[in-house]
Design a protein around this nucleic acid. Structure first.
Length: 123
DNA sequence: GGTTTGACCCGTT
DNA sequence: CAACGGGCCAAAC
């Protein structure tokens, strides 16, 4: 499975705008990209994201405030602990294995142009 | 070309 | 809190 190209590219743009110390959820990004209820594809997009983009991928977690479990073994599991360490290093604490979304969720300022583009294309 | 497979989410039981 | 079901839908097989 792979995310549709339009969604994928918007996700990359959105993720690149998440500031240090904040986190966004998969569903939130899908919504912002104009593709509500397509949270899974956001995960797909991130899994397929080239390292060369240098995206702050670690700032994307699931709606429960937890780091989403990777399917594979070995390196993928390492990515999970790395993600937590990167976030804690930025000042995003994990309490009981979860991030307090009410406090750390990214609240982007959506400009009028973007809102219009999304409204037009989101059918 | 039908089936399986996901870095997900949410309401219900 | 855990389990389940339904929504989502492009690829890989």
């Amino acid at each position: 499975m792979a995310a549709p190209a339009p969604l994928r590219d918007r996700v990359y743009l959105l993720v690149s705008r998440i500031p240090p110390g904040s986190v966004a959820t998969y569903g939130q990004l899908a919504e912002l990209a104009g593709y509500p209820r397509r949270a899974r594809f956001v995960g797909q997009a991130l899994a397929a994201a080239p390292r060369s983009l240098g995206l702050p991928w670690h700032r994307v977690i699931n709606a429960q405030g937890r780091i989403s479990p990777r399917r594979g073994e070995g390196r993928r599991r390492d990515a999970e602990s790395l993600q937590q360490r990167l976030l804690e290093a930025e000042g995003v604490p994990f309490v009981g294995g979860r991030v307090d979304l009410a406090r750390h969720r990214w609240q982007p300022v959506v400009d009028a142009a973007w809102a219009r583009a999304v409204a037009r294309e989101a059918r």
